[in-house]
């Protein structure tokens, strides 16, 4: 497998790397694009892809529930899993993706070392992710979650491959 996240190589191959920041989402039907999000800690990154329509998307959510700040959720729905994920799904459906064909994968939801951290943001992000997917008739096809490592997550719009990089090593989800 070629190193998809090697930007220089991707550019030589005529690919466009589209970075997705924290609390952002991107959707696309352009096979030249590779959607990438960096530094997933307790945040959760989700990729969705419809192989038939060639439509996909990536979101980087920071927090589980929008109820802690509805004003921020209105301004930045992608900040929260419960507002961001429905927005992502709607956006790919608008581009022609179909719910029955949609492949959903996730990475992140990590936490510091040991059992003592009390905030459990990563764990709760994953719980809310599961609930929102279930409500929308979807399930996770693959995931790379938990642990104290940072992750990079990418979706290749050409092949539909979802790639995770941890500690410099890339693997396909």
């Amino acid at each position: 497998m070629s190193a998809l996240l090697d930007i220089a190589q991707a550019q030589r191959e005529g690919r466009t790397i589209v970075a997705v920041d924290i609390s952002e989402m991107r959707v696309s039907a352009d096979p030249a694009q590779v959607l990438v999000t960096y530094s997933l800690g307790s945040c959760v990154g989700v990729t969705v892809f419809d192989p038939e329509a060639g439509v996909g998307g990536l979101i980087h959510c920071m927090l589980p529930l929008s109820r802690i700040d509805p004003r921020k959720a209105a301004a930045r729905p992608a900040m929260f899993v419960d507002t961001g994920l429905p927005a992502l799904l709607q956006a790919v459906y608008d581009l022609g993706a179909n719910q029955r064909r949609l492949l959903v994968k996730a990475a992140g939801g990590g936490s510091p070392l040991g059992p003592d951290e009390i905030f459990k943001i990563g764990q709760r992000n994953l719980e809310v992710l599961g609930k929102v997917l279930w409500k929308n008739g979807l399930e996770l096809r693959a995931q790379s979650v938990g642990g104290a490592q940072a992750r990079t997550l990418a979706l290749d719009l050409q092949t539909g491959r979802t790639i995770v990089r941890t500690d410099g090593k890339e693997s396909e989800l």
Binding site: Y38, S39, G41, S42, C43, G110, I121, A150
Partner: peptide, 11 residues
């Protein structure tokens, strides 16, 4: 946790 400026030492 959020990943602001996370390097090799991550979390």
């Amino acid at each position: 946790d959020v990943g602001w400026g996370m390097g090799a030492d991550a979390m």
